[in-house]
Design a protein around this nucleic acid. Structure first.
Lengths: 229, 229
DNA sequence: GGCAGGTTTCGGCGTACGCCGAAGCGTCGC
DNA sequence: GCGACGCTTCGGCGTACGCCGAAACCTGCC
């Protein structure tokens, strides 16, 4: 039997990093893509500074977090959007039991950030519509903006400085846990989301991950082929 | 802060189920979709019968496994292909560190079973090509066979009894850990894979998950638009 | 009925590790 | 320089749980 791609020890180690509620809480707190100092994560996890420090060390050594020191703070963040995508995927075996996230926040299902890009029903709708329209093309190295997609966004009111950059960025399909379908992640997904936030089509709802589409934003998106039922 | 879809305790519990090498080994041993008796899983995990029984009980209560008794054996299997898809996705945060599975078995990267459907480069190629050709359509309830796809398979030599059924089955996008893109899972994926096995385009390589495409199979698939570089 | 084999339950041992308080180290600001 | 503050390291305690052998349970077979 050829040793599996992910062997029992690697799988167990990865599981062990999640197996402690305090560590899980820290990872969830970092899901929005921002970096946070150790003390804030300790509070989020509900443990003392010493305990938090030990947990952060383990997560760091496990490759799930990155850190950078600034003054007397040490800011921790997720090691990459792969980690965020993977945490989202963790909900997969869970969802079937409580069906399409019956208990989950409705706004969160509709639109939210996944790491730093747009996810939820709206994220999937954008990805579907633009793939169909040829504005997104999937190739060996990921998703790319194509055709006059960037130009169409500019005409719809997005900042030229932001749209001009889109065709150069690479996107990655990211599995959406509420929709179970792909949305656009990677640098392209992040830039696209920032463009929409900048144009006022979306705004952040407080400190959480939910995003609220504006009436104008929905109209503009509908004009670009994106239907949100 | 609206409580996240997957809270810290659920995440930790899921992690804890993987956190033990013995349990991880059992899950990996069941990844091919077959059901296995407790004793065999105990051997696969390298622990005694008593220990294995305790682990299986935990996995069962955690909803990751199902069981059915037959005579004096109790056969355990993964609770569903969601669980298999999720286990595959576990490799995601791991892959970036050792890049596209440098150490993994080449045959396994090329074609393998994911639960019971086709995955690996070939699985992704099939999904890509047939989406592009309109033979697969993605809709709100998943992936469906469309156009004359079933008919084309029949003409290429697949058993009519099998191809006739395909348009009625529902598929699900399943994230491929080596390719990081979608392949076809769900009932449609399973049936499609069985059709190809039946036609001799693929055969199972021993007891593992690797699948070996035959020369004829590759030719036939190329004729159907599927290119495997 | 009696025995054999597969599986689970029980009891007990040992380790791993989560938790905290106290102490050490670095940075900031007076 | 000195205290305040943020963070990490160290030491020690307690629990959780993985492991096994022995015993109980169940099924199938003679």
């Amino acid at each position: 039997m050829s040793d599996a791609p992910l062997n029992r020890y690697q799988l167990a180690e990865l599981g062990a990093l999640l197996a402690e509620p305090a560590r899980a809480a820290m990872l969830l707190a970092l899901m929005d893509g921002r970096a946070r100092p150790a003390g804030e994560l300790a509070r989020a996890a509900g443990v003392g500074a010493a305990t938090a420090s030990a947990h952060l060390k383990r997560l760091l050594e496990g490759g799930l977090l990155g850190v950078h020191a600034q003054g007397r703070h040490r800011y921790y963040r997720l090691a990459g959007d792969e980690v965020a995508a993977w945490l989202e995927a963790m909900a997969l075996p869970h969802a079937p039991r409580s069906l399409p996230a019956a208990s989950a926040d409705a706004a969160l299902c509709r639109a939210r950030t996944c790491y730093r890009h747009l996810a939820g029903a709206l994220g999937v709708a954008v990805c579907d519509a633009w793939l169909e329209r040829g504005w997104l093309r999937s190739s060996a190295d990921g998703l790319r903006f194509a055709g006059d997609a960037a130009e169409a966004l500019r005409r719809a009111g997005c900042a030229p400085a932001l749209t001009a950059n889109l065709p150069r960025l690479r996107g990655r399909g990211c599995l959406d846990w509420t929709e179970r379908r792909l949305h656009v992640g990677g640098p392209l997904g992040v830039a696209l989301t920032e463009t929409m936030l900048d144009a006022g089509w979306l705004r952040r709802a407080g400190s959480g991950r939910a995003l609220l589409p504006s009436a104008d934003g929905l109209r503009r998106l509908a004009g670009l082929g994106v239907r949100l039922d």
